[in-house]
Amino acid sequence: MGVGETIGLIHDGDSVTLSGVSMVRAPMAFVKEIVKAKRKELSIIDREPGIDFDILIGAGAVKRVRFAMLGLELLGLAPNFRRAAEQGEIEYLETTCGAITNGLRAGAMGMPFVPVKGIIGTDLLPLHEKKGTWRVIDDPFSGEKIVAVKAIIPDVAVIHVQKADKFGNASIEGARFEDVYKAKSAKTLIITAEEIVDTKYFVGHPERNTIPYFYTAAVVHVPKGAYPTACYNYYPPDYGFVKNYVSMCRAGRFDEFIERWLRGEEDEN
């Protein structure tokens, strides 16, 4: 199956989470398909996304974004996200790492919410209480106040992995971040993989299977599918690509970047 053939699994208005953090293992080939297919009104959600979310926002695919941090680390603020937030073009909900990761874990566990420590006393709390994503409750045992974080159940998770078989058994090598929870909480899971391996790869080494087949709706072979973000054991992040992206955005040339990127020209540098 080609990456373009799975795009039908994502619909306008869906909530979507993507694998990786910052410049590591984001499913960039799939992000490109979302842009190509001109998906609209998406709610995108992730702990610490970067260029993946910024491109989707710049391309007009996003209505709502939920994140704990969205930036490009030492390479600067995420230019499209920043503009869209400041101009009121998108709705944004800032969260905090411990809440979003546990919200996804609750989704994976099938629990309606999880209690999460910390947070009380910060200005994030009233924002989320208003949105209905967090609530302060009394611990039924100790009576102490604690934040209940509502389960996060995305319509779609797209997870890029190093290896998968054709049935959707998937192996994440190195850092997993919250990707296993994302995969298990989402209603529809799409796996993109650097390599398609024979199922024999997992037989005798079941510990390699970080996301087993019965969670997976579709699996796609996409070598360099995370590029320009990194894929451990395959390639590092391409910092030059991200720097160039930032300078093109700052020069008002995002549309030109997108045209070139969709044609595959940016990826050839």
């Binding site: 610490e48 994140f67 704990a68 941090m69 969205l70 930036g71 603020l77 995420a78 996200f81 920043r82 937030a85 400041e86 944004y92 800032e94 905090t96 790492c97 411990g98 809440a99 999460v116 420590k117 910390g118 947070i119 009380i120 006393g121 910060t122 994030l124 709390l125």
Partner: peptide, 15 residues
């Protein structure tokens, strides 16, 4: 200015 966000700050600073 929309800053990148607090990441783990709100969760971890009390802990």
């Amino acid at each position: 200015i929309k800053l990148p966000g607090g990441a783990a700050t709100s969760f971890l600073t009390p802990l």
